[in-house]
């Protein structure tokens, strides 16, 4: 049996993928540990896609090759979301640092477009296809928006686990840091639609809407991140032309659960 390298790299020494979202990098003690696969989870309108796009744009500015795989929306429409950024430059796309792929195009190439449910073999083919793109283009940052929509066509927990495990392992083996967007309904008491994704992911960034006395605040909380110490506090965020901004959620001397002080959605 070949010798495996089991040497432990201390958290502080792990190379970081600096997200470029200043406050998030502070929360994560310098950024996401390189090669981690992170689940960005939340209900609609919480800023998951915007945060993920900013992560890619900052990577592209650093001349890392970045890829956005769109499952639910046309990628051309996605472009409209990043153009308002003060720091976005069209040349990032023209020079190939930032690229977009619509997953139906991949399904089409693999003959999966009309399939309502994928087999294990087809899942492997899909991952192999993504791997080919990652390797050929030396992709260092990847976003899939959303993995929930991909998992919808896998149907069983076994297949979802197989897909998530192989996808994350493959991305990690190529030094690719990924944000995998997970959609949940506001009332969902867990971090992912199928319950499998959250257990496998290296990190979970939970985004939500907090209702406090009739005000609706967008929130962000890093629930888990392997390979780094991090804050687990809840922050309020704003989506602006200068990027995602975060400030600590005020507690006002402590809000008791169910006291009417706040409600997550």
């Amino acid at each position: 049996m070949a010798d495996k390298d089991y040497s432990i790299i201390p958290d502080k020494e792990r190379e970081r993928c600096v997200t470029g979202i200043e406050a998030l990098d502070t929360i994560l003690n310098g950024g996401i540990p390189r090669s981690n696969s992170v689940l960005v989870t939340g209900s609609c309108g919480t800023g998951k896609t915007t945060l993920s796009l900013e992560f890619l744009v900052h990577g592209a500015i650093k001349e890392e090759n970045c890829l956005f795989i769109s499952v639910t929306e046309d990628s051309k429409k996605m472009l409209n979301n990043i153009v308002p950024y003060d720091f976005f430059d069209q040349s990032l796309i023209e020079e190939g640092n930032l690229s977009f792929i619509d997953i139906p195009d991949l399904y089409d190439e693999l003959g999966l477009l009309e399939k309502s449910e994928f087999s294990f073999k087809e899942i492997d083919e899909l991952i192999a296809k993504i791997e080919k793109i990652v390797v050929e283009n030396d992709i260092k940052r990847l976003v899939i928006d959303s993995v929930t929509s991909v998992c919808f066509q896998l149907k069983t927990e076994e297949k979802i686990r197989d897909f998530m495990l192989h996808l994350m392992k493959m991305l990690s083996s190529h030094g690719c840091t990924s944000l995998l967007i997970s959609e949940i309904s506001p009332e969902e008491p867990r971090y992912s639609q199928y319950g499998v994704e959250e257990a496998i992911a290296d990190g979970i960034i939970m985004m939500g809407n907090l209702e406090r006395q009739g005000d609706l605040l967008r929130t962000l909380q890093v629930v888990k991140m392997r390979g780094t110490d991090h804050s687990r506090a809840k922050y309020v965020l704003d989506l602006t032309a200068v990027g995602v901004l975060l400030v600590p959620l005020l507690k006002g001397g402590g809000v008791k659960a169910g006291s009417g002080g706040g409600k997550d959605g």
């Binding site: 406090r212 005000d215 605040l217 309020v236 965020l237 704003d238 602006t240 200068v242 901004l245 400030v247």
Partner: peptide
């Protein structure tokens, strides 16, 4: 609303960066 104190902080932060 003046009750959205976090958003006041966020807007100040935004203007400082912008």
């Amino acid at each position: 609303s003046p009750t959205m104190l976090e958003n006041i902080s966020l807007k100040i932060e935004y203007l400082l960066k912008k």
